[in-house]
Design a protein around this nucleic acid. Structure first.
Lengths: 151, 151
DNA sequence: TTTAATCCTTCCAATCATGGGAAGGTCAAG
DNA sequence: CTTGACCTTCCCATGATTGGAAGGATTAAA
């Protein structure tokens, strides 16, 4: 199977497959004489595993851990669970962050007439000198609207 | 006022102030003879406006729009409201996305013993061949856990 | 068989907002 | 006059992903 077919079968783009190989998330594959990468069904299975983990928002680093636990028959399920729960924590923190933003904005928007007149509480709030209102500043480590996407 | 003082007063790092200037979000400031940037209280006010908008998760592009509306005394409040509400929509979509991920993961984790034994439903699910489960794949445009941070 | 289309390869760049750091100039206090 | 704290510009890194260019391989149709 060529990389394009493996991409279709796994849902991971050819670009990303090469990238995952380059960073060592997946091993280097066999090549044909002319240099084409060759994939087996087993490789596709691994890629699908990776894609699902990405769909759940795991970072590539976490996925590397998950893959190696997956391939370790002696693994302890608590190690997997720990990764999953830590990730849940991160997700929930981010959810709260976004909820605070959305809620602040909605409150401001409700009080804005939204007509042709210039008066606007939204701008007033952004321009205000007072101490911070409800909206919590996003965590320094995890941005809010990154564009990094899974798939 | 030097850039460092403006940074402290506004909550925007000196690095970011220079960056905002470089991309045209804020105009080029006056300089001292030796080339130091000089900021007025008014500039700091603008920077604070920008920081608040960032704290609410607006993109730099949206902030540029907000700033120009802010400075336009003839603006229509509906233009501001439209930006705010569109952003609320984005935030809420993202929230739902993350909630689906967290919920899927929590369900999987609940069913994982989390002990020393290898059996683990989390890995089983990731490795499963079946059709996608509850977890919705993240939107291609807006990633889930970007690291780009606002402050 | 020639040719065109469709693959594949590697390499480089861009995204977005931000931080880190180097190399070097400036300024104020001691 | 030195020291330390500032400032300047410039380049690089982040994370995951996409885009594209330049060139080789394969395949199917003409």
């Amino acid at each position: 199977m060529n990389i394009g077919q493996a991409a279709k079968a796994s849902g991971v783009s050819a670009k990303m497959i090469r990238y995952y190989e380059s960073i060592g998330l997946i091993p280097k594959t066999l090549r044909t004489e002319s240099g084409y990468r060759v994939y087996s069904d087993h490789d596709v299975h691994t890629l699908r595993f990776i894609r699902r983990a990405r769909d759940l928002g795991f970072s590539v680093e976490q996925i590397a851990d998950l893959v190696s636990l997956w391939q370790d028959r002696e693994r302890a399920s608590k190690d997997v669970k720990a990764i999953a729960l830590e990730h849940v924590g991160v997700l929930e923190r981010k959810i709260r962050e976004l909820q605070e933003m959305a809620s602040t904005l909605k409150h401001l928007a409700v009080n804005c007439h939204g007509d042709a007149r210039p008066h606007c509480p939204i701008l007033e709030e952004l321009a205000s000198d007072g101490a911070e209102p409800a909206a919590a500043k996003p965590d320094a480590k995890f941005g809010v609207l990154g564009k990094t996407a899974a798939r």
